[in-house]
């Protein structure tokens, strides 16, 4: 479903190459993890897939179900089924969380030629999904992410994921800033969305999130490249020995 080939990316403002040729194939229903030290290009990968400004793709391609992602606007990518759970979800003062969600859901439905949800239908679904993520009515009322704790922000991201029902979910350091309980809650939310068809790309610095969201494939990324791929055992290896050994081994 997601097919990335030789993806090379530079920063737009300075002459600096961040991604030096990424290849990644994620099949339907698969969960892949990307691990790697800070500055290896993990977050950049997620931003480039979602279409954040400031990056220049100099070579390669990224396709979702055969559609060229790199040729689309961010919202078109979202409508095509790509969802990014941000590492630092943005605060939007004055915009109610509910309004935001409903606007997003209906925009995507519209883009896909589906009928918009009525206020009633929408409310019913949101309440159901919010409940399982322990998001209370108050959080839904407040402005988007404003005054949310770290855990609340991440749960809110997962709620959006649940509401938008994407095909391909990219989770960027979703575990950062979370304690164990919050992480479990988030992981349960993600696991509940695993239905055999939806795919996931979990970007993380630590192995601990992968205890809760079991990956099929683990990739190690360093210096803008995927330097090693393997099964879940690779994550454990990192946990035990750090990145140094793998880096040395590849070098």
């Amino acid at each position: 479903m997601l097919s990335i080939k030789n993806l090379q990316v530079e920063l737009e403002e300075e002459d600096k190459q961040i991604l030096k040729g990424i290849d990644l194939e994620i099949g339907e229903g698969e969960v892949h993890a990307i691990m790697g030290p800070n500055g290896s290009g993990k977050s950049t990968t997620s931003y480039v897939l979602a279409g954040k400004a400031g990056y220049k793709v100099t070579a390669g391609s990224a396709e979702l179900y055969g559609n060229d992602l790199l040729d689309m606007n961010p919202e078109e990518r979202a409508a095509a089924g790509l969802f990014l759970a941000f590492q630092y979800p943005v605060e939007i003062p004055g915009v109610g969380n509910m309004t935001f969600l409903r606007t997003a859901v209906n925009a995507q439905r519209k883009a896909r030629g589906e009928d918009e949800l009525s206020a009633g239908q929408f409310l019913k679904i949101v309440r159901e999904k919010a409940k399982s993520l322990k998001i209370d009515a108050d959080m839904l009322k407040r402005p988007v992410n404003v005054g949310f704790s770290g855990g609340e922000k991440k749960r809110n991201e997962i709620l959006q994921m649940a509401m938008l029902e994407p095909k391909m979910c990219v989770l960027d350091e979703t575990d950062s800033g979370l304690d164990v309980d919050a992480m479990k809650l988030v992981a349960e939310g993600v696991n509940a969305l695993r239905d055999g068809k939806r795919s996931f790309l979990v970007i993380t610095h630590y192995q601990r999130l992968l205890d809760h969201i079991k990956p099929d494939v683990v990739h190690i990324m360093a210096n803008g490249r995927i330097i090693k791929s393997g099964g879940p055992e690779l994550a454990l290896e990192v946990e035990e020995n750090g990145y140094a050994d793998i880096l040395a081994e590849v070098a």
Binding site: A50, N73, E75, F100, T103, A104, Q108, L164
Partner: peptide, 16 residues
């Protein structure tokens, strides 16, 4: 960008 990632076009995002 956050709004657009969630599927709104630029004018919708600005209006919001």
């Amino acid at each position: 960008f956050y709004c657009r990632q969630r599927g709104m076009d630029e004018e919708e995002a600005v209006a919001l």
